[in-house]
Simulated assay, not measured.
Amino acid sequence: MHDKLKNIILTLTLIGIGLGIFSYSKMYEFFYQEFYFPAILAIILIVFFFLPKNLKIKSKFLNLTALGIGIVLVTLTTQLTLDYFGMIRTEKILTEYHELDCEKITDRFTTDLANNEMKYFSSGLVGSGNLSENIKEYGIENFDLGCMVYDNLNCYNKLVSNYLKDKKNITINELYE
């Protein structure tokens, strides 16, 4: 039992450290503070492996605690890795749409509508409130751009607003509430 648990904890530790290193290498410039807690957990697990064997065999609490820490470490580093891939996806979409002029973005809206992949690019200093949750009900993904405003993305947003008004009988302003 002890050897199996030790191997499980070792596997969780290695996976957590691997995912943590991958995420850190990709996002350290912006989010380095997010890696403090996973790093502390990894250090605790490494220390666990250097504890005397008789102490680990006698203490089930110590083993279960190490297992719990390993699970938390893998969960946190997996979330950081998924956040990274989400940021890459968002960056790719924003780059693609930002390069289109109003005429081409109309064609893109038609394609997105046919594929049920519509987007809304909210911007402004105030924030989008409940827009992200409310607009999701209509199969539209919200991209909150903060204070950046782009004319071509406003063209796309107008098409989305008109679609909601004509087909769903709701205005975009109602979705902010």
Score class of each variant (00 low, 15 high):
148 M>N: 11
19 L>M: 12
5 L>T: 08
32 Y>I: 14
164 L>E: 01
55 L>G: 05
168 K>Q: 12
119 K>E: 01
110 T>F: 13
47 V>P: 00
155 C>G: 02
100 L>F: 10
121 F>I: 08
79 Q>T: 01
3 D>I: 07
86 G>C: 04
84 Y>C: 03
125 L>F: 13
68 G>F: 14
58 K>A: 07
68 G>N: 06
134 N>A: 04
72 V>T: 14
38 P>K: 01
60 K>H: 09
94 L>T: 13
18 G>S: 15
48 F>P: 08
14 L>K: 13
43 I>D: 00
45 L>E: 06
37 F>T: 08
85 F>W: 14
136 K>V: 00
46 I>W: 08
135 I>V: 04
117 E>A: 06
25 S>Q: 15
103 E>R: 11
127 G>I: 01
47 V>F: 11
105 I>W: 09
51 L>K: 10
102 C>W: 06
120 Y>C: 10
28 Y>K: 13
133 E>G: 15
36 Y>C: 05
132 S>P: 07
154 N>I: 09
149 V>C: 03
21 I>C: 12
173 N>P: 01
102 C>T: 11
88 I>S: 01
113 L>W: 06
143 F>P: 06
106 T>W: 10
86 G>E: 14
174 E>Y: 01
59 S>I: 06
154 N>P: 00
149 V>Y: 08
118 M>K: 07
